[in-house]
Design a protein around this nucleic acid. Structure first.
Lengths: 191, 191
DNA sequence: ACCTGAACACCGTTCAAGT
DNA sequence: ACCTGAACACCGTTCAAGT
């Protein structure tokens, strides 16, 4: 038998995710990743077809992480408006901890770097369920999308530094999610 | 007197914007821009400090374009809910015509490439005014931010291919903006 | 079988030398 | 006074040759 791999795909993805946060997408070079896992750049191509695939794997890993956080934040049985609130806040915490990963997931660049629909679907299951319980089976998908769009847009603006006119951003977020959840629940009540 | 410039900053920015849409941010290289305006790459540094500055100028130009479109879509005196609807649709049209520029503006990367607050402020003046007329002076800023967050988030998800479960995306957008405008107007009515 | 140095075709950027 | 070739320090990626 011959040389066992000196590194592994999970190790590579983890190192890549760390580099992504510390140096942005530009800092995520094959050479830097290789150095972080203790090999030379060409060896990475034993585990990954090219850099775009590595970026995609990092995005998918981040998305799975986010999905797990949403599950914890809004466990089964939580009152749905409260669950939506908790999920939105969990998304915002995720974005603060991993801003570059957030951007990768919600504003991906080249096609080849986008998370697979499968991974994306699993990550959104919690919010979809909340949407259905909040707005009814019929409008559940629309409700989940509306909240996701608003929250991710708000957070993207925040990360982009769009909220320079002070105003209390924390309060605005809380205000928005509450009002949105009420409006969507109101729709279900047939008002 | 000596050699006049063989190109100009506006020409460079325009060529850059074209390359951005045709080849993404990766296709926007100094060499490609130089070729497009008929000089060699080093000459660009007479007009621009570095690539990040060029990217920023392209983003600012796109933002000004967007601001002008919003003005046209929601002229002074339009009924505010209708104006908000028109502005949201104008943003979506902009994103479809210039997806890469949209991403640059709403999900910028490195600090140095972000539009200046000044340019951003001017571009949002129309929506801010609509927000104030919709939700009152007090809550106008919050209302404008809420609609902008929702619309930009929705469109970013759309561009990212997040709406694979069909559903009628056009209808969902129309539904969302109408409901949002109503909810924000309701807030002003003190309900 | 994995790992590597060397190589290739690119980048962004600088700068001395041309006109 | 703008323009350029040449150069430098980087990239991503391939591949023959090492172990």
């Amino acid at each position: 038998m011959a040389a066992p791999s000196r590194t592994s795909l999970p190790e590579i993805v983890a190192a890549g995710a760390r580099l992504l946060e510390s140096g942005g997408l530009d800092g995520l070079t094959m050479q830097a990743v290789a150095r972080a896992v203790g090999v030379r750049a060409p060896s990475l191509y034993k585990h990954v077809a090219d850099r775009d695939e590595l970026v995609r794997l990092i995005a998918e890993h981040a998305l799975a992480d986010l999905g797990a956080r949403l599950d914890v934040a809004a466990p089964d049985g939580v009152e749905p408006r409260e669950g939506m609130r908790a999920a939105a806040h969990a998304l915002r915490r995720f974005a603060r901890e991993r801003p570059a990963a957030f951007r990768l997931v919600f504003a991906p660049g080249a096609e080849a770097t986008r998370p697979s629909p499968d991974v994306a679907y699993r990550a959104t299951a919690t919010v979809l369920r909340l949407g259905e319980r909040l707005a009814g089976a019929e409008e559940g998908l629309a409700a989940a999308r509306t909240v996701t769009a608003w929250a991710s847009g708000f957070i993207a603006m925040e990360l982009a530094g769009a909220f320079r006119i002070p105003g209390d951003v924390d309060h605005a977020f809380e205000f928005g999610i509450t009002r949105l959840a009420d409006a969507l629940a109101g729709a279900a009540a047939g008002r």
